[in-house]
Amino acid sequence: MLRGQSTRVPLDWKAAVLPQGQVYVIPSRCKECRFCIDFCPRDVLTLSTETNVRGYRYPVVATGKDVACVHCEFCSLVCPEYAIYTVEVAGAGVTP
């Protein structure tokens, strides 16, 4: 178990809805710092195989991670270039 991870479960855990997010990328702004990829709590993203006009690879959703994004918006916050954001998919949330 990871250090700091808790075994406690919130009281409203059953009623909680885990939102699903859709990732949007603006490839021309990306400078390949990899913050969004490495800090994504769900490991949703990976580097593209193609490059943008400046020669940087940009983030794309990894194979098999199509519905893994939970719309926490940390990629959007941590991106130094304002090149990625997520939008909540209406009605696609799942109960844990």
Partner: peptide, 21 residues
């Protein structure tokens, strides 16, 4: 669902987006 490409960021109205990157 795969990655979708966009032209503008939702926070763009707060920035002078024509100067980005």
């Amino acid at each position: 669902m795969t990655t979708l490409m966009a032209e503008r960021h939702p926070s763009d109205p707060l920035f002078r987006a024509d100067r980005l990157p």
